[in-house]
Design a protein around this nucleic acid. Structure first.
Lengths: 134, 134
DNA sequence: AAGCACATGAGAATCATTGTCAACTCGGCG
DNA sequence: CGCCGAGTTGACAATGATTCTCATGTGCTT
């Protein structure tokens, strides 16, 4: 593996931002900011909790990571591809599959337009129990 | 307004539960528990905040009201029809329109099945700015 | 090397939501 | 009608995630 991760978007590549970016590259499921903060500490690359939150926020804005809210409203993060997509998440083990639904995109846009809503965005997540957890 | 509302599901019809049910019947948009608590106070039917939360939770479980998380993770409630549906919500004023998307339902089920996920459920909300708030 | 805008972190501050628990209420029963 | 127990309530404390503050540190540019 090449050094893989520079740093979030076009921001100053500080030790902390690089550490967060690397941490995000090291797992495949959704994790809370607190989990990530803890993971960094254990790795010996401590980053302040506030900084973790700030960095994650920026990465979400720049589209480098996905943000999703668990059923109880907590935010969780995961690195993602740069195309618009949704998630099929195992509600038991968290295994996540990125899926695309051009039809859905079209549909939401049409519905919104039809009712005069602008600046449309949407959230769509699919939950289920994966084969391994059955 | 006729008395319309008995009380949530099959619970003891206390003054508080009736008041909450009536309050829910009095508006059409999504409101936070705190908003509802305040609305009740202003109406002269004060109900403790904890009770508002408890009652709302029960109503969500029984399917009498919809719960949705705003983009910043706060819970908001709204009475709803009993058929499965989604929402087109104004992110400024909260005005909500219930929408159905048979195509989407089919699509999510197909995707999940294709990847071996069972007991599928999904969340889909559309956010936008309504004509009045533009 | 110097200056400075941007970053960081420790801890305080917010704020929605939940827990605690003593006081209260509803309905059934004698 | 009065009493009892389970279910309810509400004032307030407690939690917990996220954000704010602000003094201090650091990456670049000149």
């Amino acid at each position: 593996m090449t050094s893989t991760d520079p740093a979030p978007s076009g921001l100053r590549p500080t030790r902390q931002r690089i550490a967060v970016a690397e941490a995000m590259a090291s797992f495949d499921d959704f994790r809370s900011a607190q989990d990530i903060h803890e993971l960094l500490s254990r790795r010996g690359e401590p980053v302040g909790l506030a900084t973790v939150y700030r960095t994650l926020q920026r990465m979400v804005e720049s589209g480098e990571v996905d943000l999703l809210r668990t059923e109880d409203g907590e935010a969780s993060y995961r690195r993602c591809s740069d195309t618009h997509h949704h998630h099929l998440v195992c509600r038991t083990c968290g295994a996540t599959i990125e899926v695309e639904g051009p039809g859905v995109e079209r549909w939401t846009r049409a519905i919104a337009e039809e009712h005069g809503y602008a600046q449309v965005s949407h959230t769509l997540e699919i939950f289920g129990t994966c084969a391994a957890c059955r």
